[in-house]
């Protein structure tokens, strides 16, 4: 009778597959920027999306890596999760975790041709912001913030947590104007490698991601 196992297994597996899911849409945006500032690039990684009910994790997205590019209107993530799951908070990372950083080559959003990988020193750029600011002392009044780093002392990955009540659509706004106000562009306009400056700026930037109710 053992041969019966096979069809039973098959039916069970298809049953799991057929489980109905819901989609959670997370949209990222920025408010209109002051006309004196020119934005050229704004890209970042959103990874390890988790749904929580109270203090326990109820859903974790597999292979959870999303490259957001707000200049190319690649600004939304769709997360399919089981219908039965209820949650009241969502957690995700701004940046690529250490394990992924040391595990070789990837395709998709982690493809090194996406402009978010440092060639000469292995590692992903978690957050990339480029443009021109009237106060910048750099060439062409440009500013370039390439933030990343996963080594001890250079760890720049940040976590975001938002309370939400089973809402299927979240709008997360990066309050870029308030962030710009904190930067002295005459001194701080270029970060291109991991290190203390990248860590500090990453810690600051994450505080300007807000949930739009």
């Amino acid at each position: 009778m053992k041969w019966l196992l096979f069809p039973i297994l098959f039916i069970t597996l298809s049953g799991i597959r057929a489980q109905t899911t819901k989609d959670l849409i997370i949209e990222f945006s920025i408010p209109p920027v002051d006309k004196t500032i020119e934005l050229e690039k704004l890209r970042f990684y959103i990874t390890n999306i988790q749904l929580y009910s109270e203090d326990s994790i109820v859903f974790e997205e597999l292979e959870s890596v999303h490259l957001i590019d707000l200049m190319e209107s690649q600004n939304s993530i769709s997360v399919a999760f089981p219908e039965t799951v209820g949650f009241n908070s969502i957690h995700f990372n701004l940046g690529v975790d250490s394990l992924t950083n040391v595990s070789g080559i990837y395709s998709g959003d982690l493809d090194p041709t996406k402009g978010m990988y440092w060639a000469w020193q292995s590692g992903y750029i978690n957050f990339k912001l480029e443009g021109k600011h009237p106060l910048s002392q750099a060439r062409n009044q440009s500013f370039q913030f390439h933030l990343g780093g996963y080594l001890p002392g250079q760890y720049s990955i940040q976590q975001l947590k938002f309370a939400t009540n089973n809402s299927l659509k979240l709008n997360v706004q990066f309050d870029i104007n308030s962030f710009f106000e904190t930067i002295d562009f005459s001194k701080e306009n270029t970060i291109m490698s991991p290190g203390e400056n990248a860590v500090k700026l990453s810690e600051k930037i994450v505080t300007y991601f807000k949930l739009n109710e």
């Binding site: 070789g104 090194p112 041709t113 060639a119 020193q121 292995s122």
Partner: peptide, 23 residues
Amino acid sequence: AINHLEVQAIAPITHPSEMGEDL
């Protein structure tokens, strides 16, 4: 500087003093 064999070749391919290319 490079942490994995699979990503190693990106460095010489793109370095201006080596192969100076873009992936």
